[in-house]
């Protein structure tokens, strides 16, 4: 009997978390699924009716939905490589021996952008990128860029979102990759450095395999984060000008909470969830390797 845990104990420990997960995660998901199969507009509740997959058909054939999806993946395609490049650079610098105090301070300061609330980042952006009074244009004025219309120009507004996303999440990538670098056994790395002086060779053949689990985690988390990126963009540009920064989560919020069509918005959200799961599976199958 020794070592055998009673069912009571198992349920006692696991039960609360399973119940909490069911209440917080599963129940709303099931409700969203139910809603997505109905005409369900908050301002027309007398007309709620089962419509089968009509909402899904509308979403899948709606070019505005796919434009927003394309825009979201374009953002991911632009910002993620920047975050990975800069994050890897920071991680490699912090991994070098010496300057312990400065590195500790640098690690601590890396947490600050991540700890900043998304909505606050958006509001900061409004002030900093203000065409006339913003500090960014003040900073750029000696270089001839003092009158850039950031928020009112489609391309610039998109660039501004990329900037903030990179600013906020590069530290996260750096910290994850730094953690990965610390898992490389010291003797292997030392031996590799005796073999070659080229940092790229060490990175490619010795450090990278240890970074892969972290990279996959970063890919999954940053993809999911980008797909649900909302607060910062909403407070900064509200999806504008035009549709230039209307990413998929802003579109879903617009349909569900400003147009009040919860049925259509739920169908959009379920489709987004399916895309996220497929992407996560692809990342794991293609990139993930145990060292």
């Amino acid at each position: 009997m020794r070592g055998k845990v009673s069912r009571k104990t198992i349920f006692g420990f696991l039960g609360p978390s399973v119940i909490a997960l069911a209440l917080i995660g599963i129940a709303p998901l099931l409700y969203a699924l139910w809603t997505s199969l109905h005409f369900f507009n908050l301002t027309k509740l007398k007309k709620v009716k089962f419509v089968g997959f009509e909402n899904y058909t509308s979403v899948l054939t709606d070019e505005v939905f796919w434009q927003a999806m394309g825009r979201t993946f374009f953002l991911l395609g632009v910002s993620l490589p920047l975050q990975l490049g800069l994050g890897l650079g920071i991680a490699l610098i912090l991994h070098k021996p010496g300057l312990t105090l400065l590195k500790t301070l640098a690690r601590l300061s890396l947490v600050l952008p991540m700890a900043t609330t998304y909505a606050v980042v958006g509001l900061l952006g409004q002030v900093m990128f203000n065409q006339k009074f913003g500090v960014i244009n003040q900073f750029l004025s000696p270089f001839g860029g003092g009158n850039i219309n950031w928020i009112g120009d489609s391309t610039n507004a998109f660039a501004m979102i990329v900037f903030w996303d990179v600013w906020q999440w590069t530290p996260f990538v750096a910290l994850v990759l730094l953690a990965g670098l610390t898992t490389v056994p010291g003797e292997i790395e030392e031996a590799a450095r005796l073999e070659t002086k080229r940092w790229w060779t060490v990175l490619r053949y010795v450090q990278l395999p240890f970074l892969m689990p972290g990279l996959v985690a970063v890919l999954i988390l940053r993809t999911a984060d980008t797909l649900k990126l909302f607060d910062m963009v909403f407070t900064l540009t509200r999806g504008g000008p035009g549709s230039s920064t209307e990413f998929i989560s802003l579109m879903i919020q617009r349909v569900g909470f400003r147009g009040f069509d919860q049925g259509l918005a739920s169908a959009q959200a379920i489709i987004l969830l399916i895309i996220t799961i497929i992407l996560a599976q692809i990342y794991i199958r293609v990139f993930y390797r145990e060292v």
Partner: peptide
């Protein structure tokens, strides 16, 4: 009652026209 839906359309296309 449909204004909340319509205003979203006006906002999107009105801005696109201006741009």
């Amino acid at each position: 009652a449909e204004w909340p839906e319509i205003t979203e359309i006006v906002q999107e296309w009105g801005t696109k026209i201006m741009l």
